[in-house]
Design a protein around this nucleic acid. Structure first.
Length: 563
DNA sequence: TTAGGGTTAG
């Protein structure tokens, strides 16, 4: 009888453990409803069962209210229950609720403090995080690493390093956090030194370094490091693939993607975004479409960021209508979606549509940001709307409290320069908060050439050369300006300066994809076997483009007049 | 409880 009872108790506790494990497994797979069913059907539950469901509700189910009400119903709570509800509130950005639970918790361990610390860091409240860190009764490697990461993320790399050096013990996570902190703050040399000093290099640290090399355009070292990783995971693949994409090597990125698939790594949504970005920058519509098919197969069409990348791809491949279809297919659009669709129409010269979208966006309750204004300004520029662009520029700061960045000034300078209002353009450059960037002077120099303004041309070229000695374009344009004005001795002076400094002009190039073959065109190169035909076709196209542009402008103006 | 990749402009 005694033995029988003992067996029954053993079986029941085995069942309990099994059910608890099932709840956790189902939650990990994202099926909260099934986890809840298992929980409801359990003959006996312990603290582990309650805690497992609690975490499942806010993490996999993203349902904080449900988690909070379960927490209230719990027959008893241990420190893990309290830590879970605190972490849940923080994961949902509810700092106030998290702090309230933290204050009410009858017992706190290092993990409770660490959870609060991580929450504060994630929300960017570094001052509060620092205060909490100082207050902690006990700190472990996690507490220190969280602080190192947080400090580096808000740009305080030196303090981060100081703390890193002061840590009583460090683990792989601490090293990776510090290295990635350097990479995020564009301190590759420091990152590299620390990486070399790392006693044991793992895939995370390697991936951070790969990102760093890619940021510097050093794909050779990035690739060498990548090839050396034994256990490559999807994130390291994404780092190298997107590295190639952002350095204009979309083809290499695509090749790597194929290898990745062959090695049995399943692409995730970051992989697909990188691929779509490659298609956008190379205008590969066919490949873009097939990537769209992969997105559908992977059931990622409801992801906003994927759709935003799809929209860009279609638009850059010349297909605004499909871009808009994707936009409409979204259940809810975020600021990036709106910026993307506005940019799409801006790039296609549809000024009136851009304005309409801008108003529609506001009606939907979204506040335009600095990037929205860049698209708007660029659209004004293409449509030659000088007055409207100046109004928008003012509106930016007066109504939306966005301070214009160098890029916004660059737009305005570009618009004014094209319109021949060079003096006014120059006054905007002088108004710029930071020192005028290279491209702003470049714009002015370019305009000085078209409008034959020697004085401003000289000024712009001087500024350009001061900021960048390699700037071959500046010399060429300045010499053209002098030549147009008949100032031949000045022309000779610039030419000999170029020779002295060994400046060489980088030829411009473009490419197009026809029937799976990429054709490259380089400025001044007429070696293509069908050059005559290409040129005559180009003349036809530019003739048609002018007609279409005029027609579009007429239609839009007509539509505006009709209200 | 801590670390790596990922959408918009130019």
């Amino acid at each position: 009888m005694h033995r029988l009872r003992h067996h029954a108790a053993l079986a029941s506790s085995r069942l309990l453990v099994r059910d608890n494990q099932r709840i956790t497994a189902l939650a990990r797979a994202g099926d909260v409803a099934a986890a809840r069913r298992v929980f409801d059907a359990m003959p006996r539950r312990d603290a582990v069962s309650w805690n497992a469901l609690l975490t499942a509700l806010w993490r996999a189910g993203r349902d904080l209210p449900a988690a909070r009400s379960l927490f209230d119903d719990m027959p008893s709570r241990n420190v893990i229950s309290w830590n879970s509800i605190i972490a849940g509130c923080l994961a949902h950005g509810d700092l106030a609720a998290a702090s309230a639970y933290f204050a009410r918790a009858p017992r706190r361990n290092v993990a409770s403090w660490n959870a609060m610390l991580a929450g504060l860091v994630r929300l960017g409240s570094m001052e509060d995080a620092r205060a909490l860190f100082e207050q902690m009764p006990e700190r472990n490697v996690v507490s220190y690493t969280t602080m190192v990461d947080g400090l580096a993320r808000c740009g305080e790399v030196a303090s981060a390093r100081e703390l890193f050096d002061a840590m009583p013990t460090r683990n792989l996570v601490s090293w990776a956090a510090m290295i990635s902190g350097y990479v995020d703050n564009n301190m590759l040399e420091e990152a590299r030194k620390l990486f070399e000093a790392m006693p044991e290099k793992n895939v995370v640290a390697c991936t951070a370094m790969i990102t760093g090399y890619c940021k510097e355009g050093d794909l050779q070292n990035a690739r060498r490091l990548f090839d050396g990783i034994r256990a490559k995971d999807v994130i390291s693949w994404n780092a190298i693939i997107s590295g190639y994409v952002h350095n204009g090597l979309g083809e290499e990125a695509t090749k790597l993607y194929i290898i990745m698939l062959r090695e049995g790594i399943k692409p995730d949504h970051a992989t697909l975004i990188a691929l779509l970005t490659a298609c956008s920058s190379l205008a590969l519509l066919r490949q873009g479409r097939s990537t769209h098919a992969v997105v559908i197969k992977a059931m990622l069409e409801s992801s906003i960021s994927i759709c935003n990348a799809l929209m860009t791809m279609y638009s850059k491949c010349g297909n605004v209508d499909e871009s808009e279809l994707v936009f409409m297919s979204l259940k809810s659009q975020d600021i990036v979606s709106w910026n993307t669709i506005i940019a799409a129409y801006a790039q296609h010269g549809r000024y009136q549509k851009v304005i309409a979208l801008f108003h529609e966006m506001e009606l939907c309750g979204l506040i335009p940001n600095d990037i929205t204004f860049l698209s708007m300004l660029s659209s004004c520029g293409h449509a030659g709307r000088v007055d409207e662009s100046l109004k928008l520029f003012d509106l930016m700061s007066s109504k939306y409290a966005i301070s214009p960045r160098a890029e916004h000034y660059a737009c305005i300078v570009d618009i004014l320069s094209r319109a021949g209002q060079l003096e006014k353009a120059c006054s905007y450059i002088k108004e710029m908060p930071s020192e005028a960037e290279k491209n702003v002077w470049g714009t002015l120099l370019c305009a000085s050439q078209t409008h034959g303004n020697v004085q401003l041309g000289e000024l712009a070229a001087k500024m350009l050369v001061l900021s960048d000695f390699e700037s071959s374009g500046a010399y060429v344009m300045l010499s053209n300006i002098y030549a147009a004005a008949g100032m031949w001795s000045e022309v000779n002076r610039v030419r000999s300066q170029m020779k002295e400094k060994g400046v060489k002009k980088q030829p411009g190039h473009s490419w197009t994809e026809i029937a799976d073959k990429v054709h490259m065109f380089v400025g001044g190169d007429a070696s293509h076997p069908e050059m005559d035909m290409i040129l005559s076709e180009l003349r036809k196209i530019s003739f048609h483009m002018q007609i279409v542009t005029d027609k579009t402008q007429m239609m839009e103006e007509l539509a505006q007049e009709c209200g």
